[in-house]
């Protein structure tokens, strides 16, 4: 599709001799352009690691949403006859059971669900605060920029882990509080990145052209700055999600995660670690899922970074 019209404009020139041909072409249907997104997607598709990761992550996501509904066991239901039973195909305990006789397969599914949810939701919170903060600071500049970025500097110096622990101890183990706490602290990086990008975008001539064209500041941010930030933000997001998942696992490992009997991958790893010597599968299985999810996000992030890098064009 893109080859043929390209050669067409190559020949074409707005002279009298070409007028008839131009008219014919003009009346033909408008050619659809290839946006940078389509280009990036085409490049991403050639990245095997990223594509495999995308598929694996898709399977895990769909699986942990759909399967618990149809699974014969629930995450909280103990089976006192089958304590610490190893993985077996009989009786559908594919990953075995834990010390209370709960089915580990469904618990791993729930663990993935919670971990992904924490990762995604906290990242969205991060994004919302970080992009707004950074874009405004970068675009407006001057003293407001100074004030906003010094605030970021101050927040950077807050010891993050003790802060979250104190929050949880004060307000109890609430999953939404956790989202908020994690999000509230990790927006700082993205605010800095977005501000830097905005500063350089602001210098671009197409922004000047928009101003000369009478476009207001709010519209410039919405129509020009933000769409041009999306690339870098997406890369950052795919790299933030796994960090947050790991952080949640760490909190759960300390026993500060979600409230039992609900669990997360970190919680399962923590439980499994306690019985590591007698029942190693209880540690190994959730650990593999945790590692695979984190790996997938990292591969996708790297792939996106390469795909969106304009230097490659």
């Amino acid at each position: 599709m893109s080859g043929a019209p390209r050669r067409e404009w190559f020949n074409w020139y707005p002279g009298r001799s070409a007028a008839a041909r131009a008219r014919a072409l003009a009346e033909s249907e408008a050619v659809r352009g290839r946006s940078l997104w389509q280009d990036a997607w085409a490049r991403l598709r050639r990245n095997r690691a990223a594509m495999v990761s995308l598929v694996v992550l898709g399977i895990i996501t769909v699986g942990c949403i759909v399967l618990p509904w149809v699974w014969p066991y629930s995450y909280a239901q103990p089976d006192w006859n089958l304590l610490d039973h190893g993985p077996t195909l009989a009786g559908m305990h594919w990953f075995g059971t834990d010390g209370l006789g709960r089915d580990l397969f469904v618990r791993v599914l729930y663990g993935c669900r919670i971990s992904l949810m924490v990762g995604v939701v906290a990242t969205l919170v991060t994004l919302l605060i970080g992009v707004t903060w950074g874009a405004i600071a970068g675009y407006v500049g001057g003293w407001l920029d100074g004030l906003m970025m010094r605030t970021v500097d101050v927040l950077y110096s807050v010891p993050f882990i003790p802060f979250v622990i104190v929050l949880i101890v004060l307000f109890g183990r609430n999953i939404f509080l956790m989202f908020a706490a994690i999000g509230a602290v990790s927006w700082l990086d993205i605010a800095r990145i977005v501000r830097g990008q905005t500063l350089s975008l602001k210098q671009k001539e197409f922004i000047e052209a928009a101003r000369a064209g009478g476009v207001g500041n709010a519209s410039i941010i919405r129509r020009h700055i933000v769409p041009n930030l999306i690339g870098i933000v997406i890369v950052y997001v795919t790299l933030t999600i796994p960090t947050i998942i790991l952080f949640e696992a760490f909190l759960s490992f300390l026993g500060l995660g979600v409230q039992a009997p609900m669990t997360s991958l970190g919680g399962l790893v923590s439980d499994g670690a306690n019985v590591l010597q007698s029942y190693p599968y209880q540690l190994i299985i959730p650990s593999i899922f945790l590692a695979v999810i984190v790996y997938c996000f990292n591969f996708i992030g790297d792939g996106l970074r390469d795909a969106l890098d304009p230097k490659d064009r």
Binding site: A30, V31, R32, R34, R313
Partner: peptide, 13 residues
């Protein structure tokens, strides 16, 4: 001197 059917193309093209 641009073709009107290029209206949906992007600048980098």
């Amino acid at each position: 001197g641009l073709l009107p059917n290029q209206v949906n193309r992007y600048a980098h093209e």
